[in-house]
Design a protein around this nucleic acid. Structure first.
Length: 310
DNA sequence: AAACTGACCAACCGCTTCCTG
DNA sequence: TCAGGAAGCGGTTGGTCAGTT
């Protein structure tokens, strides 16, 4: 399977986008939707490859993009999801509405990863680099197994979401076609198609208030996705109940009320402040304690408005 | 003021996955 | 079932800017 040759064409512009180019792209997509990215540049009068246009649109021009600094809750979500999913930025991005995978990836690489390293936590495994003293307390190996299990569930769940979203769209389409109001529906269909094209092309699932919702109206699909989610959540909760005991012991019975927030950014940041001041050993364990709590609070069944659930 | 350094992030590259005929 | 094209994705690069020497 050869690579797409679109970017190899001579005479195509590369590098930063000008405001005129942005305007052209915006105007074209606003009017026609993006349709085929490959043919778009020519139609829009841009001397760019389709890939470049798609990237510019998805990462910068899309109207549903939230720009600016990440807040504490978003940071927390990224870290928690990264612990579960690894470098699957697009999957992580689906849980952070209005943020692009590229933005999340950049933020992780420039901020969060460094912060974890400073805390003595391996940003790849999300385990303390010096695991020996903690693991000997018996909690972590179990925790790691649980995280692994959670990751598997999440993986399967994401696949199911994507599949069901496709099926839902298909069902929606078929329903329309079978209807007697063809002309009317065709109008709706084209409007929806336009809207859909204006929506995030990287996301097969749209989110509202942290809940998953589907475009289609199929109750079957909704039930299926609910089942999938419930399976996953109940499974992880079940696992969590067991882990919590180990974790409690692991946390040296430390008071408990650390709050749900990830400690590192309380004063931009604990990561930065960890370098200064004494009691580094205490800070190390305190940070890890907070960190691990934040990871496991992600699957805590108790409702929390600070932690977006699926 | 100039040179240097590091942080940040938009954009590119190339591989993988999906879709269609 | 398979091949080829298109889109998606993650890793990486390179330009810009602010802070430091």
């Amino acid at each position: 399977m050869g690579r797409s040759p679109c970017c190899d064409k001579m005479g195509l512009k590369k590098g930063p986008w000008t405001s005129e180019e942005d305007q052209k792209l915006l105007a074209y997509i606003d009017e026609h939707g993006h349709g085929s990215w490959r043919s778009l540049p020519e139609k829009a009068g841009l001397h760019r490859c389709g890939k470049s246009c798609r990237l510019r649109w998805t990462n910068y021009l899309r109207p549903d993009i939230k720009r600016g600094k990440f807040n504490l809750q978003e940071e927390q979500t990224i870290i928690q999801l990264h612990a579960l999913l690894g470098n699957r930025w697009s999957a992580i991005a689906t849980h952070l509405p209005k943020r692009t995978d590229n933005e999340i990836k950049n933020y992780w690489n420039t901020h969060l990863k460094k912060r974890l390293v400073k805390m003595g936590i391996d940003p790849v495994t999300h385990k303390p680099k010096n695991e020996t003293p903690l693991s000997t307390l018996g909690g972590l190996s179990k925790n790691a197994a649980t995280l692994s299990h959670m990751a598997q569930w999440e993986s399967a769940r994401l696949e199911a979401e994507a599949r069901l979203a496709r099926e839902s769209k298909l069902l929606h389409y078929q329903t329309k076609v079978s209807s007697s109001h063809h002309e009317h529906l065709n109008i709706i269909s084209s409007d929806q198609q336009k809207q859909q094209q204006l929506d995030s092309p990287t996301s097969t699932v749209s989110f509202s208030e942290g809940k998953t919702e589907f475009v289609g109206s199929s109750s079957t699909c909704l039930n299926m996705i609910k089942e999938t989610e419930n399976d996953w959540i109940s499974s992880t909760i079940h696992e969590f109940e067991g882990v919590e005991e180990g974790l409690t012991g692991l946390l040296l019975g430390g008071g408990g009320s650390l709050g749900p927030s990830f400690s590192a950014d309380k004063n931009e940041t604990a990561g930065d402040s960890s370098g200064g001041g004494g009691g580094e050993c205490n800070n190390y364990y305190e940070d890890n304690k907070n960190y691990l709590e934040s990871i496991f609070s992600f699957v805590d069944p108790s409702p929390s408005d600070s932690t977006p659930m699926f």
